[in-house]
Design a protein around this nucleic acid. Structure first.
Length: 609
RNA sequence: GGGGGAGUAGCUCAAUUGGUUAGAGUCCCAGAUUGUCGAUCUGGUUGUUGCGGGUUCGAGUCCCGUCUCUCCCGCCA
């Protein structure tokens, strides 16, 4: 017999009855009846009830076993009597009657309860992540992640993509997020950078003629965390295709997304093709380039209706280039006055000068601004917003950029507070036609609004003839339930167009040659038209698992301040290591480095350093 | 870098306008218990109310500072 197990804790069934079996696992729960002891033995595969009879010499030992200790139990599989069958358990028709018990590992008092649906304090969870991961929900999430990755690999291979590895130690790129840097021992004063994405490598693989690339790619960005953004590192399903149009990329991604969401979630989603929403339309209708389409609020431009009208607060702002955005919400006319007052306060708190609104109730139109409007204007608003009895329309008037932000936030808040979004569906869309360039509000200079390597729509002609701010890019995002899953683009594979595009953003030919020499040289030596995208794996799993925080789908995440509390990273290193790397630490003036890290005393005696 | 929230027993939380010995569930410990499966029953331990200062006859509660965690803004080609 195998020293540890003949079956897993999820394997035994009624047809194993009277078999001799050996199980190993964690003591999940104990039920001590004095003259009879039940143990629920748990492993990765499931739970099996072990029965210990009082005449066994190990009975006493077992009654004193601490939860989460690990034991090996040898015994006979016995059918449960009909009234004691547990139909909630796959193994619930049988139980293992113990003839021998070996303690493999004793568990000391636990800092976290394993059999507990509620989360403990975040820092304790992260410090004892291996315990947190024993909990059913997290264990399930991590396995879901594993299965999703496996599915993606299989699907991508089926679609003719080949998986590649690209360097982890590479060079810093001047664009984009802050890099994580790795000092070179051999080259004093020089640094590697961890890749923010394998962007250039995957494009070079296209130049190399591999046609279709994919990778479950680690990406490293030194940026601050959010609930859906883990600091440090994250993973993308990175893909790139040669001789591909935007439509080709969409088709592949739609097939993969529909496949993975169909396979791993029971929630319905809109089937491909996903709606294509131009960036400008998304900003107008939803105030966001990652709209949550579950919220049934579609905003409208009402600038024309208020222009030169009797509502001077709006008319004067419009004269200075402002716009009016109408936010129609159906069926909320009955909300109390306090609801509207709070919303006005909220709008002000996020930078709005105010929040106007009209209420269609009891056959009349009410609201603070109604006295400034003509019946024709009100009629026009009702027609524009398609509202009527019991509906409400909010209005914000300001500079266009601010209006987008305010109404976008307002739309989300209304959706949230009024629970307008169906939590049991996924709604996908593409955001397309992103502008190639934008004006940096601080410097007033033109910069790339997204990926500088995107192909401008209209190619060379557009770059040469159009107002830069009017040029669109073959740049796209896929969005699900208000979550940006990914950005992608058809790439600019022409050195000439690239030089021109970079010139508009203020980079000289020499700059481009210096910063992107590898790429620009490659594009002079036969580069196929190509494009791709990189859906965020962590966010996909987060959506599938129904989790609100990305840490819940990462086995060993860092906390919000980019610390690994379990491994104690980042940490100081020995002077010898610094000398070898030709580095000297210059602490900031308010030196937090002098403060020792908080210590959590636990079973392993200290902070695990 | 900025703003919000939270911090009370190992854990989840309570504690009236500032009022007397800071409670409950759970975990843990002891005892009882032969069919439970979140076992049950009885009893018990657990506290620098994050930390430091201040106001007050009196502070978990009010004020100031600070630390930790978290959410958001900035940032994320």
């Amino acid at each position: 017999m195998h020293p540890y197990r003949t079956h897993t804790c999820g394997a035994l069934r009624s047809n194993d009855v009277s078999r001799s079996a050996r199980l190993s696992g964690w003591v999940f729960r104990k039920r001590d009846h004095g003259q009879l002891l039940f143990l629920d033995l748990r492993d990765h595969y499931g739970l099996t009830q072990v029965v210990i009879h009082p005449d066994r010499e190990f009975f006493e030992l077992c009654t004193k076993l601490k939860l989460e200790s690990i034991i090996t139990v040898t015994g006979v599989v016995v059918a449960r009597s009909p009234d004691t069958v547990n139909s909630d358990l796959p193994t619930g028709a049988i139980e293992l009657v113990a003839d021998a018990v070996t303690v493999e590992s004793v568990c000391e008092p636990l800092p976290l309860q394993i059999d507990c649906p509620e989360d403990g304090p975040e820092d304790i969870r992260l410090h004892y992540r291996y315990l947190d991961l024993r909990r059913e929900r997290l264990h399930r999430n991590i396995i879901l992640r594993s299965r999703v990755i496996s599915y993606l690999r299989q699907k991508m291979t089926e679609l003719g993509f080949n998986e590649f590895q690209t360097p982890i130690l590479t060079s810093s790129s001047p664009e984009g997020a802050r890099d994580y840097l790795v000092p070179s021992r051999v080259h004093p004063g020089k640094f590697y950078a961890l890749p923010q994405a394998p962007q250039q490598f995957k494009q070079l693989l296209m130049v190399a003629g591999f046609d279709r690339y994919f990778q479950i790619a680690p990406c490293f960005r030194d940026e601050d965390a959010r609930a859906d953004r883990s600091p440090g590192e994250f993973y993308q399903l990175d893909l790139e295709m040669s001789f591909a149009t935007q439509a080709d990329v969409f088709q592949v991604v739609e097939e993969v997304m529909a496949g993975v969401f169909g396979a791993f979630s029971s929630k319905p989603f809109n089937p491909p093709p996903f709606p294509r929403i131009p960036y400008a339309e998304a900003m107008l209708k939803y105030g966001s380039d990652k709209p949550d389409l579950r919220i049934p609020i579609v905003m409208q431009d009402a600038t024309g209706i208020f222009k030169g009208g009797g509502f001077k607060a709006f008319a004067s702002v419009i004269e200075q280039g402002g716009v009016v955005r109408a936010v129609p919400v159906k069926g909320i006319a009955g909300q109390p006055r306090s609801f509207f007052d709070k919303l006005v306060d909220y709008a002000k708190s996020i930078g709005s000068k105010g929040l106007a609104y009209l209420v269609w109730e009891g056959g009349i139109v009410k609201g603070p601004i109604v006295k400034f409007l003509t019946p024709d204007q009100i009629q026009a608003i009702a027609g524009l917003c398609e509202v009527g009895e019991s509906d409400v329309v909010f209005f914000v008037c300001d500079r266009p950029a601010l209006v987008n932000k305010i109404t976008g936030d307002l739309r989300l808040k209304l959706g949230n507070d009024l629970k307008l979004a169906d939590q049991n569906v996924f709604k996908f869309c593409w955001i397309v036609d992103f502008p190639m360039f934008e004006t940096d509000p601080e410097t007033n200079r033109i910069t790339f609004s997204h990926n500088p390597f995107s192909m401008p729509q209209g190619g060379m002609q557009a770059i040469e003839e159009q107002d830069p701010l009017s040029i669109l890019a073959y740049q796209y995002d896929i969005v699900c339930n208000g979550c940006e899953l990914s950005s992608g683009a058809i790439r600019n594979h022409s050195p000439d167009i690239m030089y021109k595009a970079f010139a508009i953003a203020g980079y000289s030919r020499e700059d481009v040659d210096e910063k992107f020499s590898g790429m620009i040289n490659a594009f002079r030596l036969g580069a196929p038209p190509h494009g791709g995208i990189a859906p965020g794996l962590d966010r996909i799993v987060m959506l599938l698992a129904g989790e609100q925080n990305i840490r819940e789908v990462i086995a060993f995440p860092m906390n919000q301040k980019a610390q690994d509390l379990m491994m104690d990273a980042p940490a100081p290193v020995a002077d010898k290591q610094l000398r070898e790397l030709h580095l000297k630490v210059v602490p900031p003036k308010t030196a937090p480095a002098a403060v020792p890290p908080a210590e959590i005393i636990g079973p392993l005696g200290g902070n695990l350093r």
